[in-house]
């Protein structure tokens, strides 16, 4: 499985293993397609954005979210228990004094239930190696220039613990509805490589 393998070779290899497993009763016909469909219909950054918008308009929810995110997100119909195992979720709030950014230095741990599949850059050795050594420089490459007085906390996710950033509510958004606020929140904002 070197990187030199063409896509058609690895496609054939994967089909071969699937057929073998079906023949041995370890995989049902159609099970793969069902799983793919369910996954693609599941988490998207809109879930994380919905949590953020609720926290912006409801200080009580924000406090519960920061204290016990697994419990709080159930209030908006979301859960971290839908995957292979329940994962602990910690939501970290950006302030004027501290910006937060999430990484998984060891592999690619990510709150898929809330954000959907992670972007390739999140899984790259480049991001994983550098954001812990030079977070300010990496964030600048993403176009996020933070004031020198703002400290940066880097949260390293693991198999058991996942993180999501609660961005600061942009100024001048006082008249927006919760739904309109959610539309402002991006995937990068939820990871911490963008302000919102």
């Amino acid at each position: 499985m070197s990187g030199d393998h063409s896509s058609s070779v690895i496609s054939a290899e994967v089909r071969h293993v699937e057929a073998l497993l079906e023949a041995r009763g370890l995989l049902d016909a159609g099970e793969i397609d069902t799983r793919i469909d369910e996954f693609l219909a599941g988490g998207t950054p809109a879930n994380g954005a919905r949590i953020v918008a609720r926290a912006w308009v409801d200080p009580g929810f924000a406090a519960r979210l920061l204290a016990d995110a697994n419990a709080a997100i159930r209030e908006v119909g979301l859960s971290m228990a839908g995957g292979l195992q329940e994962q602990r979720l910690k939501v970290v709030a950006n302030t004027e004094q501290q910006h937060n950014v999430v990484v998984c230095t060891l592999c690619s741990c990510y709150p898929i239930a809330l954000l959907g599949p992670s972007p390739s850059w999140y899984k790259s050795e480049a991001y994983r190696s550098r954001v812990v050594r030079d977070p300010r420089g990496v964030l600048a490459e993403f176009g996020l220039e933070l004031p020198a007085g703002t400290s940066i906390a880097v949260w390293d996710a693991s198999a058991e613990s996942r993180y999501m950033v609660l961005p600061r509510r942009p100024e001048g958004t006082g008249s927006l509805s919760e739904e309109e606020l959610a539309a402002l929140v991006t995937r990068k904002g939820l990871i911490g490589t963008a302000a919102v």
Binding site: T105, L106, S124, E125, A126, R133
Partner: peptide, 13 residues
């Protein structure tokens, strides 16, 4: 790889 040097630039798609 946390903190390791020598990897290429981060590329966004």
């Amino acid at each position: 790889v946390g903190g390791m040097a020598g990897f290429p630039a981060i590329i966004e798609e």
